[in-house]
Design a protein around this nucleic acid. Structure first.
Lengths: 286, 286
DNA sequence: ATCCTTGATACCTCCAGGGTATTACAGATG
DNA sequence: CATCTGTAATACCCTGGAGGTATCAAGGAT
């Protein structure tokens, strides 16, 4: 009758790794159990989800569809747990997420003053969990930096700010007034390429192929800067982050042809509470 | 670990009726089983969901929160089943929902021509399932009439059209060129009052209290018109519906102070497919 | 004081989920 | 060509949970 969220979670684990044994290990269950559960799921849905050849495991089209739907469904279930838990603990809370560099205190203080009964909390997010935190209920509303996957979100633009490159202090470009993306084409980017889509375009145009390292990606700003200082590459940051995290061994240089970073407020579009609109209005006023 | 969708479904059944016995009956299970499952859910979530006094059952705040989250979650799970089922059957399909009176064929034909591999289907919806059909996956995109609950939906305005009153042919107002809502204040409205919010305002202003009947609500247009013809009340319909469903024993009269009905396209905001934007563009062109 | 309504308890059955041991089979390897 | 290795499937067992029936407990109504 109803799908079993446990089986969906198992399915996602297998679909992510395309390997039953390793997925079972990650799920802390035995491999035969996992095989059986996936098979049971396939029978329940009357749909083959994987093509198992002896040597490889692949998703069928139905499997792709299920993966696309199962991930947000599991996140929604997680969010439900969190919100019910909070409601049970009695505290009317409102949690604001924010990316590094963004100043949320004035807006949060204003909301607290307007709603004395409300516990307004603040959570720092990273590049790759800024939307996940909204979907799984860790935050009610989030200050996010585009680009993001807007599926399931209500997004309201707030501001935009220019972006700068973070270079080691002794770098050949460190003293310059302004540079272009092309100047950085040979550098190693120490962050998720999705965060700087323009980088990839330049990369495919200008970079020599085969030069690409496996690219360890760093999430926390502090980590990125540590590696920049160590001469392992460069990072592109919004101006406010640069001014917030200053250190003597890292230089910031304006990048003229990089479009500004857009900052938005985002919240789960399936929810409706006057607090979202109210907070958005407050935040826009600053 | 994961919440159990079956328990959530049970919970919703109880929350809707605030009565364990009747909910159990509706679910086709025995009442003690239901009591035990709800209690198990309360323990899993570590949250009391109902206040059971001997004579009445009520929702706690946590229960209210759970109800708000469980309903869309169950719909999403249902949609997942449907979409995986379709994907498994191989057919790439795209289903367009529409409210009575709206002409969808030109846009649908255009989409079919552009995507010969796609099976484009068409489903008629009613006032109260026009958004539910989107949420539970029966339709991919829907022509809807405002007002709707926009939670979880991406909504694009299309057109708007004036609304008229449907009266019995012999009614005292039937011959008039145009009337106002106030003229209809004493009439019995044969449809969901939410569909005509202005009605309620007038009703509370002008109507004598105690006059309100329990209001059986009719969903299909044909049913409404049947009852209008029978002299059991009046209905308010968008002009296109009126011109589509004409019958000699029903007269339509323009209502001057009723704002026009807004027609939109709506689809599930958690999904992303180029087909949504493409179809929206096609539909807007007509 | 008694009855009725309604949710909770007690106790039984059975299936589904978890585990271990082992098999089957495709590719790699010598 | 024989063997080894990696990987999912099969076989079988055990336990917990979901379903059922019979019954209880207690607050309102009469």
């Amino acid at each position: 009758m109803d799908v079993d969220l446990r089986k969906l979670r198992y399915f996602v684990a297998v679909a992510d790794r395309l390997h039953f044994g390793r997925a079972a290990e990650a799920l802390h269950i035995a491999q035969p159990v996992l095989s059986r559960q996936i098979r049971a799921l396939e029978e329940e849905l009357k749909a083959q989800l994987f093509v198992r050849s002896r040597r490889a495991t692949e998703l069928t089209p139905a499997g792709e569809q299920l993966l696309a739907d199962a991930v947000p469904l599991l996140a929604a279930a997680e969010a439900l747990r969190r919100r019910v838990g909070r409601a049970a603990r009695g505290a009317r809370t409102f949690t604001v997420g924010f990316m590094p560099g963004l100043i949320v205190t004035p807006a949060v203080r204003e909301l607290r003053e307007r709603h004395s009964e409300l516990t307004v909390e603040v959570v720092r997010t990273t590049w790759d969990d800024q939307t996940a935190a909204i979907h799984d209920g860790r935050v009610d509303i989030g200050y996010v930096r585009l680009p993001i996957d807007q599926r399931g979100l209500k997004v309201e633009p707030l501001t935009s700010e220019p972006r700068v490159a973070a270079l080691p202090a002794g770098h050949r470009l460190a003293g310059k007034e302004a540079i272009t993306i092309a100047d950085l084409a040979d550098e190693h980017l120490l962050q998720d390429p999705d965060a700087v889509p323009e980088w990839r375009d330049i990369a495919t145009e200008l970079r020599r192929p085969g030069r690409r390292r496996p690219a360890p990606v760093f999430h926390a700003v502090e980590e990125k800067l540590e590696h920049v200082a160590g001469g392992h590459g460069v990072a592109v940051l919004p101006l406010s982050v640069a001014t917030f995290y200053t250190r003597p061994d890292v230089a910031y240089v304006q990048v003229t042809d990089l479009p500004p970073n857009q900052v938005c407020l985002a919240w789960d579009s399936t929810r409706r509470s006057p607090l979202f609109a109210e907070f958005a209005a407050i935040a826009a006023a600053f």
